[in-house]
Design a protein around this nucleic acid. Structure first.
Lengths: 339, 339
DNA sequence: CGAATTTATGAAAACGCTTACATCATCGGG
DNA sequence: CCCGATGATGTAAGCGTTTTCATAAATTCG
């Protein structure tokens, strides 16, 4: 009666009178066994309540059926959709996710990667391309299938969206309806190539029309609604006041909109506000938020699919790049400038 | 030069002229070695670029420094805050998280738990107490430290918030300011004890004042803003119209508010709307949302702390229960009914 | 100064599984 | 009727650690 130890293949082998190898095969390659043998083994396994020990399996076979994912943060509407979908796809194929976040701190990221690698993941999904030389060295040394998402270097697989294009689209639209004085609220650009690319895209559009973006017209903030408000507050002090504010993440734009409205500055009449991401709530706000749709869930699905092909070695092309389209979604938070 | 294989303890042992046991100790219990020996081994390890293989370590020691977490969904503002904080706490202590989601499907949950158990996690964090007998059997059989969060059975450790109290508080408040006709939008109650408890809390408050809640006054919905809108639409068809709508999750309440406003029904003048969760955006909406604050991040922190104590066997009390306070946050989406 | 401790290291047996190889029937074809 | 395939199963060698126990060296002490 005292079963303190979990049953192992060995126990099943003993009880069923077969060798441990046969029992192992019953678990992983049942088609190799005679139906009768298989049935007997399965019965014993069920009776003992056998659960395979994957870490032993991993050690012996070199495959852990585990994928490491490192994201900046888990509680962002964008990354969490990507993660949710990625998790779904991997789980459906028997893979588990080891998830870590670094909260935009390079040292944290390095530590997380090292941890995941030493845990023996079969592959690694990382966000963005901008990381230290030593961080890349670590990844190279691990010789793991690597999928970069959101942004990525050509040297490795990547599933990206054109963040620069996203910035371009929203700025181009605002220019087209007549805006010339802009304010931009963005995330900290330091270690964040997604945000940087979006700002560059905005710059590119403005440059086409000869509009420049001074340092004072950009406010770097954390990626929250409150920070969006704060950023907007700063920008509204500019004289003459901007006629349009772009948040390079919807949370920032939403914060900006709230701040403007709170100060009695009508959106879009007195100020146009636009974002990038197309988070759920954007469509429902009043006014609804003009933004650029980023297919966050799709990124997760495509990254998972690509990774699965790599891990199973079905795809051995040197390095695949999947780029998903971003699309401008014009809603009601933007309008022609008044003057 | 051709280093295809990653260096192992054995390689270090050979190169340094020490035994593999000594090298192992250099990694895990350096204080046992002579400084000179330690230094030599460390030098060789560094030169070879040694990274310990945790799955081998796990197999040999029985400890994987890995915790399994199963949540309903990753892309919910609430769960993702809990996860983010939990991840932070665990990572700071060298533990990695294997995260799975089941999207409110019991079969998925069962599969996820089985997978995580067979991956050899040192502990498991699960949301809620309501799950099938076989699911519990699986967990019992695994004999793992188990921490339930949000809701939980007394038989195991748990870090909870009083969801019933949350429902009670918001309903009590609305009653106190004069409301008698209510509509409730909640998540699907089937396998969700958090949502069920909140609805019960509302019922309890109403019962105190002799107000009943008919089946038609409750709309079960998915936990999204759109569903909140849909739910509100249904409830507004009631005659006479409710004077207050409670969403048992902020996303639902937010959707309800948008829907009412979209139909020209003023909030809070013609309709009071209140939620539960206190998500980030709630404070910024106009009108700002009356809600009940749920310390989601704290749940993660407390759960991590408790689990760490269990895994390290520092805490061997039979079963601990930590209950975090919920607090009513009155804002501007609620007011006395007009009539 | 030798017995009793203590300290640093090594040898080898796990941990639970996979898998290359060996074995032994079974079987169809020449 | 024997030979080479084919198929089912067993044997045993890993996989990279930890850990127990033994051993050898250094230290303490009566």
């Amino acid at each position: 009666m005292p079963r303190h130890r979990k049953p192992t293949l060995n126990d099943i082998a003993r009880d069923s009178g077969h060798s441990i190898a046969t029992v192992s095969r019953a678990m992983s390659q049942p088609e190799l066994l005679q139906p009768k043998t298989l049935e007997r083994i399965r019965e014993v396994a069920a009776r003992l309540g056998y659960v395979p020990n994957r870490r032993a399996r991993a050690l012996a076979s070199g495959q852990s059926e585990t994928i490491g994912v490192v994201v900046p943060t888990l509680n962002s509407p964008i990354f969490s959709s990507t993660l949710q979908e990625m998790q779904r796809c991997f789980a459906a194929n028997g893979f588990q996710l080891l998830i870590a976040s670094h909260e935009y701190d390079p040292a944290n990221e390095m530590a997380a990667l090292a941890q995941l690698i030493s845990h023996g993941v079969d592959g690694m999904v990382i966000v963005g391309a901008r990381r230290s030389r030593s961080c890349w060295a670590l990844l190279e040394a691990a010789k793991l299938p690597l999928v970069q998402i959101w942004e990525g270097l050509p040297a490795h697989d990547r599933v990206t969206v054109d963040n620069q294009q996203a910035g371009y689209l929203v700025a181009r639209y605002l220019l087209d309806i007549g805006h010339r004085r802009f304010g931009v609220i963005c995330g900290h650009l330091q270690n964040n190539d997604r945000q940087s690319a979006r700002v560059e895209g905005i710059r590119a559009a403005l440059a086409q029309d000869g509009v420049t973006l001074a340092r004072t017209q950009i406010s770097e903030q954390a990626l929250t609604i409150s920070s969006g408000r704060a950023g907007c507050m700063t920008l509204l002090e500019m004289l003459p006041r901007p006629t349009a504010v772009i948040g390079t993440a919807d949370l920032l734009a939403i914060g900006a909109m709230f701040e403007a409205q709170g100060r009695g500055i009508g959106v879009p009449d007195a100020l146009s506000v636009a974002g990038i991401d197309n988070v759920d709530v954007a469509a429902h706000l009043s006014p609804s938020l003009t933004t650029v749709d980023i297919p966050a869930a799709n990124i997760g699905a495509e990254a998972a699919a690509l990774m699965l092909r790599r891990v199973r070695q079905e795809d051995t092309t040197p390095s695949t790049s999947i780029s998903l389209p971003v699309t401008l979604v014009v809603r009601h938070s933007t309008a022609r400038p008044m003057e």
